[in-house]
Amino acid sequence: MAYSEKVIDHYEHPRNVGSFDKGDESVGTGMVGAPACGDVMKLQIKVNPVSGVIEDARFKTYGCGSAIASSSLVTEWVKGKTLDQAAALKNSEIAEELALPPVKIHCSILAEDAIKAAVNDYRQKHGAGQAI
């Protein structure tokens, strides 16, 4: 498997690895994928309750290098975005940025699902739960 330089960089130096307290009111958590499929992503966002802007993000991923890179990249991208902007992120943008080969496109889809799930979780906590 030939990986792009960006995938290798994120794999070797993953950004924003870690966890926030799931119970924290300002945190939204998204966990997607399945161990049996070989990918599980956990993505968390910390939201400013006044402005609705994502101030920080963390991830942990079980999966191939492309899955790790996709989630690492997403944590960088969502910082500074509003919930709506973050939820509007498209997997094709991730796949393009990381130059993912066709067999790894599902990693970018999973990363998009993860951010949507995290935004959804935050919104549900704040009484605005709605399926995106």
Partner: peptide
């Protein structure tokens, strides 16, 4: 393993086979 959410769950004593995962 430091990167793995499954490792965290194992360390917290959560049996991952009991979780309803969404196959993709």
């Amino acid at each position: 393993r430091d990167l793995s959410p499954l490792w965290d769950m194992y360390k917290e004593g959560i049996d991952i086979s009991t979780i309803q995962w969404a196959a993709h």
